[in-house]
Design a protein around this nucleic acid. Sequence first.
RNA 1: GCCAGCAUGGCGGAAUGGCAGACGCGACGGUCUCAAAAACCGUUGAGCGCAAGCUCGUGUGGGUUCAACUCCCACUGCUGGCACCA
Length: 804
Amino acid sequence: MNSDYDHASLEAKWQARWAETGLDQVDLARAKRPYYNLMMFPYPSAEGLHVGNMFAFSGADAHGRFERMNGSDVFEPIGFDAFGIHSENFALKVGRHPSQLIASNVKHFRAQLKRLGAQFDWSKTVDTTDPAYYKWTQWLFLTLWKGGFAYRARRNVKWCPQDLTVLADEQVLADGTCERCGALVTERELEQWFLRITAFTERLLQNLDTLNWSESTKLLQRHWIGRSQGALIDFPVEGEAPLRVFSTRPDTIFGATFMVLAPDHPRTLELASSSSREAVAEFVEEAARRRIAGLRADEGSTAGVALGRDALHPLTQRRVPIFTADYVLSGYGTGAIMAVPAHDQRDHAFALAHQLPVVEVVSGRQGGGAHGGAGVLVNSEQFEGLQAPDPAREVITAALVEAGYGQAHVTYKLRDWGISRQRYWGPPIPAVHCPTCGAVPVPEEDLPVLLPYIEDFRPLGTGESPLARDPEFLRTTCPRCGGEARRDTDVSDTFLDSSWYYLRYPSADRDDVPFDRELTRKWLPVTYYDGGNEHAVLHLLYSRFVTMALQQLGYLDFEEPFLQFRAHGMIVMDGAKMSKSRGNIVVPDEYITRYGADAFRLYLLYLGPYHDTLNFIDTGINGPFRFLTQVLRLLERLEGTDEAHPEPIALARARHRCIRQVTRDTPERKYNTAIAAMMIFVKRLRDHDGPIPEAALETLALLLAPYCPHLAEEIWERLGRPYSVHQQPWPSADEALVAEEQVVVVVCINGKKRDQLEVAAGTDAGTIERQALALPRIQQWLGGRNPERVFVVPDRQVNLVLAS
RNA sequence: GCCAGCAUGGCGGAAUGGCAGACGCGACGGUCUCAAAAACCGUUGAGCGCAAGCUCGUGUGGGUUCAACUCCCACUGCUGGCACCA
């Protein structure tokens, strides 16, 4: 690399100077215009920061620096999301203890992040594995618990019968086997902690409309929450309690020819007739085995058996046979359905396989999905001819309500958040189990409940967390009655750590409170949140829930944590996600060593639109690197600007055009076109015959500052300007200079370009038309004919339309 | 299966309905050099033509418009998410 651009020492020099002068530390208490520029904190993997992290942080930092130069007091913190199963599994794999492994990973991450030259406020960093942090994660749990947002319930976990261990979902392969030993995974029921996110279901959904988030992200959340409006309908059963179903299409009820219960519906066995009981019991057992093995019955499976009992159709009083089948799930709706085979694919397949009648009740175009199809009702007695689904839906629901067989109802897919993990690498859940008092919260003054060092941190064969191995940890006294008691040995989900870290940053140096009231009021909600869309659902939803709960409990005075969220794109290589197994991981450090952080940042942001999936190309960095070298070289041709040496007007125009473009594109995160605009300006300067006016380089330093913070600072210094370029106001474009003087107007005949003419900008349509018609080449094309119509787009185009 | 997004040169990408391919990479040719690297200059969508220039061209097929990469309809392919959700 033969170049006069010594990026290594230049970047080291400025990073040291920024640290010395505390340039990126914000006086949170005194700041006048708070701007909380948050980016998702990384999980410190052993591989170090990857190109995707660098890309995200470069873009988010450019955003923060731009806001700063536009007058905001930008708080830009960074931290480490270092607890969790990923870290633990990796530690298991390499045979090291996570506490050492993660500490060294964090150290590595810090060094890498510092080399990037982002304006992180390192005085306010968080590490979720630090007891000073997880003390407050535990506080959060206790607060939610006391506020009625946490409860215990039994629930299945994935269990490997060979390794005798609880598995995380991602450790179960697609075929239902354990990723480590290949054994068929089963389930085990354990008592666990849940957070009542469903207390806010409707608010989580409604508030989305008010948030300034990427639409794609909102949509993912809406789908996840999964609101379905419909009706609960009771089908009477002779001699038994009625069978309740949920349907989004009560208007198709006249097509309901049978009913289906989930195999694990509580009444499946109860309703089976004596002659069918054996077959039903066998089916239920088989279905349970399939489910426990993690093997979902094949999609479209028509497996199922009749219960040997009928229900009565609530509106026709016809008998409808009851079945149990795999395709009905106990976890949704009521776990039972009315089957409408004419209008539901799954019901149709089942009816075919079991020779059941199919009654069409909606005429018209048939759709594929649940009770699909819109049209008018047929075969529906007094409702014949009604438009379906609406308003038939309302009318029939009303009729069912009237007859005492139904009620309008809304269901959601959202489930409460299970946070217990029977693992080691997380914050212990601060609860004590007392034989007399039950589950008792650990008193706040006893926090943190420290995660003990346990040499053998492998999951235990009993279904308990490895913490159960430590008798000193396990045995305790009940905070309520003082009797002997056991600690909860589970740790909490990593998503709990990250559900509140943005509240912690401003108060990261406080050990008396989780978050200071005044600072929180001043700095939150987060002004701008940048992150990957892979967290669109879980992390963002959990954070919203925690904020709502804390608001309801009086700890916060807002209910949405992130007013603005933008998802950035992803860096791929040869069209595939970078991964170790694919062998296409690009190590950013090598690029930074070779080309410098500035060139690397510039290159990543120049790849394409920030929100897109972008392709990393090995040689691509040459362009941005050359560009920076050229910028630096312009300094050698510098000439002071004064009355004797005014800035040539053509250069002033180019400069202001560049300012305009970069100023427009940067806040819209069109970093690639902003950089292209600067390249055009530099090209113009290089082509300029004569000395380079100081104004040109001054502007370049300012415009480059968000993108290449080190080089911008260097240029600024060499121009003799006072430190620091990052504290300067953003330049503004002079609209008078930006406007073109002469414009080229393209002359078309029937939409095809035939000639062009140059006119003063703003020339009126009539003049342009006259001049266009006078062009010799146009005359030739016209051959004496007169255009039938003429369209003039001032400053751009003339289209002469000839009759065909 | 459902939902969303995308489709433009060898490659990454640019284009308020108004000159498609800005900017960059790569490639090719040249300058400098004993040579190479670096740097600099030029060419670079396809076809035809000595040339001026002409024709074609933004996944496919239709449509709207004086004018379509851009808007509408129908397809195809890719990426991501959800997925037996009644």
